[in-house]
């Protein structure tokens, strides 16, 4: 109950700040909250918007699926082999801290303009944190688990799937949470710079036309989506950790 009240307080506070910022800055760059919400309703109802939304969601879902599968697999293969882990981790970390936008021209040349490019760009944002967290999660497991797996005569595969993965799951999930937000950023960036469709494309177009109404509405929609999703993931995260601590 208190957590619901706290969330409500945060939302009310943010809306208030937004309104204050509008009064301070004015119509040139901002629109007030109420007007934005009304315009958002109109935009969602407008013709063609839903197909842009669907395009973005499809690209994001694909990118996220790739990031999760590749990230967890990469983290696992490095985590189960000590030498590979020691060689691979610094590579992962340096790639993680690299601003991915610098790779954008190459991604574009490889995949062209459109869906494959945004998916690839979303995925490369998400893979690294997921792989790094998976690797760290496996490394932090108590050694007695490995000995127990041998004592129970598990095969390597059984040990990975039935023992190491569930034991590391709470920490891996934290990586997934981070990967989720970064993949979303990556997908939208991809749409902004190399696409004719999707929310990112609409946003870029609105920026070009200095359409403040549309910029505000799209930003509101993206922020709402990101906050809702990450709150849901955080709730699952807490539940996973609750059982194991």
């Amino acid at each position: 109950m208190t957590s619901a009240r706290n969330s409500l307080l945060v939302i009310v506070g943010l809306l208030l700040l937004w309104q204050l910022a509008y009064w301070a800055i004015g119509d040139l760059a901002l629109r007030p909250p109420l007007e934005t919400v009304v315009k958002a309703g109109a935009l969602i109802a407008s013709e063609g918007f839903l197909s842009h939304l669907a395009e973005t969601l499809r690209a994001f879902a694909l990118a996220l699926a790739i990031a999760v599968v590749v990230g967890v697999a990469l983290g696992f293969s490095l985590g189960m082999n000590r030498l590979a882990g020691e060689v691979g981790e610094p590579l992962l970390v340096s790639f993680y801290s690299l601003p991915k936008i610098t790779l954008y021209p190459i991604v574009l040349l490889i995949f062209g303009i459109g869906m494959p490019s945004k998916v690839a760009f979303g995925a490369i944002h998400g893979i690294m944190p997921i792989a790094i967290f998976t690797l760290g999660a496996l490394r932090n497991l108590p050694p007695v688990l490995g000995r127990t797996s041998r004592a129970l005569r598990l095969t390597r595969w059984q040990s990975a799937w039935a023992l190491l993965f569930p034991a590391a799951r709470p920490e891996i999930f934290t990586g997934l949470r981070l990967g989720f937000s970064l993949t979303l950023i990556g997908t939208l960036l991809g749409e902004m710079f190399a696409s004719q469709r999707g929310i990112g494309f609409l946003l870029m177009q609105a920026i070009g036309l200095h359409d403040t109404d549309l910029i505000m509405v799209l930003t509101l929609l993206i922020v709402s989506f990101a906050i809702t999703a990450s709150m849901a993931l955080l709730a699952i995260d807490k539940q996973l950790r609750h059982g194991s601590s």
Binding site: P142, V144, R147, A151, R153, L154, A162, R169, G243
Partner: peptide, 30 residues
Amino acid sequence: VPEGVGVVFQEDASFAWLNVADNVAFGIRR
């Protein structure tokens, strides 16, 4: 570890994500 040998360690090696019955069943299930 050969069949017929059972091993218990000093450290807590219970599996946090499984209840007691599933913990106990773990080895024979695999």
